[in-house]
Amino acid sequence: MPTHPSAPVVLVLASGRGERFAASGGAVHKLRAPLGGATVLEHTLAAVRASGLPWHLEDVGHPGMGDSIAAAVRATAHAPGWLVLPGDLPLIRPDTLRTIAAALADCAVAMPVHQGERGHPVGFAAACLSSLMALTGEQGAASVVRKQAQQGRVRQVEVDDEGTVTDIDTVQDLERAAQLLAARG
Score class of each variant (00 low, 15 high):
90 P>V: 10
115 Q>G: 14
95 D>N: 15
78 H>T: 12
88 D>K: 06
64 G>I: 07
82 W>L: 01
64 G>N: 02
80 P>E: 14
90 P>H: 12
62 H>F: 09
87 G>N: 00
76 T>M: 09
113 V>C: 11
84 V>K: 06
94 P>N: 03
70 A>Q: 10
63 P>R: 13
92 I>L: 14
71 A>N: 05
79 A>W: 08
84 V>R: 02
93 R>D: 11
95 D>G: 13
102 A>V: 10
66 G>S: 05
97 L>E: 02
90 P>R: 07
89 L>H: 14
84 V>S: 11
62 H>C: 15
62 H>N: 13
65 M>G: 13
85 L>G: 00
68 S>K: 07
108 A>L: 12
65 M>H: 15
110 A>F: 01
68 S>Y: 01
70 A>D: 02
77 A>L: 03
63 P>G: 09
111 M>W: 13
101 A>N: 09
68 S>T: 15
99 T>G: 07
96 T>V: 08
103 A>D: 01
96 T>D: 13
63 P>M: 06
105 A>N: 14
106 D>F: 12
94 P>M: 00
63 P>E: 02
93 R>F: 06
85 L>W: 00
105 A>L: 11
64 G>C: 04
96 T>I: 05
69 I>H: 09
88 D>T: 12
100 I>G: 04
83 L>Q: 04
114 H>P: 10
66 G>W: 00
81 G>W: 06
84 V>D: 10
109 V>W: 05
104 L>K: 10
108 A>K: 11
93 R>P: 00
70 A>V: 06
94 P>L: 04
80 P>H: 13
110 A>L: 11
79 A>N: 04
74 R>I: 06
66 G>C: 10
101 A>T: 09
111 M>L: 15
114 H>M: 09
96 T>K: 07
80 P>F: 03
114 H>W: 15
69 I>F: 10
100 I>A: 06
102 A>W: 03
64 G>V: 02
97 L>K: 03
74 R>F: 09
79 A>K: 02
93 R>I: 01
74 R>K: 12
88 D>I: 04
82 W>F: 07
103 A>H: 10
64 G>W: 05
75 A>C: 03
109 V>H: 01
88 D>M: 05
76 T>Q: 05
115 Q>K: 15
104 L>Y: 09
104 L>R: 03
89 L>S: 03
68 S>V: 04
95 D>Q: 13
89 L>T: 01
86 P>G: 13
102 A>N: 12
112 P>D: 09
107 C>T: 14
71 A>K: 01
72 A>G: 12
70 A>K: 05
77 A>C: 12
83 L>A: 12
82 W>C: 00
94 P>Y: 03
91 L>C: 05
72 A>N: 03
70 A>N: 11
87 G>T: 08
106 D>R: 14
70 A>M: 07
69 I>T: 08
101 A>K: 01
97 L>Y: 04
84 V>C: 04
64 G>Q: 01
96 T>G: 00
84 V>E: 14
